[in-house]
Write a protein that binds this DNA or RNA. Structure first.
Lengths: 246, 246
DNA sequence: GGCGCTTCTTGATATAGGTCAAATCGGGAG
DNA sequence: CTCCCGATTTGACCTATATCAAGAAGCGCC
């Protein structure tokens, strides 16, 4: 655990946040809101919260208080079996909305932890509910985000249920690449924020298998990997790993 | 394809349906609605629709028109890879709500097919949206159902990502058992509506492996299986397969 | 009531990925 | 700058599950 340069762990206080002037707006609230409408949304984010690397945003069992939009940083969500086995259920980056697992039962059903120092916007759920009632585009947006999470989950099932190791890793890299691209980062060169172990957990593989798959890609000139740094040399080739050309 | 005893395939017409008098009410709409509130909900179900065994309720690519509540029968949802590989993403029975995968993009992202003759209540999505805005308990219920689907998906990821073959099958049987119990059926004796192949797809296993796991359970006196008929002899033993006693 | 197709079971064998082990690399702490 | 520990890579070997194959058992259909 690194000593903390500033005093306290978790929050950076009551500073009001305006979604209307947030650079991530198109990610969080892609629907076409008019200026006057945006003002209403501004009441939604109660406060920002800082989560340091290794800290939890929430844990399984915590009561639902808010949903969270990632402003910066990188996080993972895990579900855990009683016997301690843990399964990474997703990796999250800026613009992603977290916490929807808690709506059903009032308590979070997964752990979410920062993989690097991160900042989230906290949206109290009661306010979100009320605003989305009064303001149809927000309602639609919330439904869309939850639906997309379901679709994403189906994709992970497909990956876990019917792909081989190298296909899984290729799918994983292409997914990361695409998400970085959407956020304005390079789709071909980035740093992984997670360990091989965490990638393996997400993909249903052991860390050694992940490592070997990386090496194989490297040999085939598909990617250049040095530890956490990845450069995709041949995106088409990677896609071909996924769906061998027919 | 069996010849159809009645003429047309899919719908049984405009007969208005009243949720308020539906025996499945507690499954679809578990929140405590008052009588006067229920009347409003009655406008939600546009019509019933009959889906025969082997027919699709919707397919990937179909535009979103409605969400569906299963009134009777049994269905499966599948996602498919371009190359034809198909992954069963879920099995559904009465009271389950279907179609939420289409909200995000306006089109369904999975196929849903009846595994036996079934009947669903069709809830036009626009009406659902409007009603849930005007009527907070319904909004809450919709959010809950979507959230629970997300949590269910996390459970499937855990299963696919970190369990062995027999653990997966035990988890599957216990899950079915519990869902039958909630619906008032025997939790220890039931008929499977799906093939070994479909179970295998759902669990990320080949049909032979599913068959062997059944045989193994049979040998260990945990269940009695004859083809599609299952009787759980030792629920505790099955749970122990999942989480070996520690 | 028999036929034929699909589903299921079971056995033999192959293999992808897991497990165990060791060496190397890097990055943070002091 | 150096030490130390966790992360990563790589190799050797093993095992759970897939694959291939052959019957057997149901079930719908005629």
């Amino acid at each position: 655990m690194p000593p903390l340069p500033t005093r306290c762990a978790v929050d950076i206080g009551q500073l009001r946040v305006a979604c209307s002037s947030c650079s991530l707006r198109e990610l969080c609230l892609p629907a076409g809101f008019k200026a006057r409408e945006m003002e209403r949304i501004d009441g939604l984010v109660d406060q920002r919260r800082r989560v340091r690397k290794g800290e939890h945003l929430y844990r399984a069992g915590d009561p639902l208080t808010a949903l969270y939009a990632i402003r910066s940083g990188f996080m993972k969500s895990c579900v855990l079996h009683e016997d301690g086995r843990e399964q990474v259920a997703g990796f999250h980056m800026m613009g992603d909305l977290l916490g929807m697992d808690a709506i059903g039962g009032g308590h979070h059903m997964s752990d979410t932890m920062a993989l690097e120092d991160s900042e989230v916007c906290e949206m109290p759920f009661t306010i979100l509910e009320r605003l989305s009632r009064e303001f149809p585009p927000l309602q639609l947006q919330l439904h869309r985000v939850m639906s997309r999470e379901i679709v994403r989950d189906y994709g992970v099932m497909l990956l876990l249920g019917s792909m081989k190791a190298e296909e899984r890793l290729a799918a994983f890299l292409l997914n990361l690449s695409q998400r970085f691209a959407v956020r304005g980062y390079s789709p071909t060169e980035f740093n992984l924020r997670m360990t091989r172990q965490e990638i393996g957990s997400y993909l249903g593989l052991k860390l050694e298998t992940v490592s070997r798959a990386f090496s194989s890609f490297h040999q085939h000139q598909l990617v250049e990997v040095r530890h956490r740094h990845v450069r995709i040399l041949d995106p088409g080739g990677l896609k071909a790993v996924l769906g061998p050309v027919r």
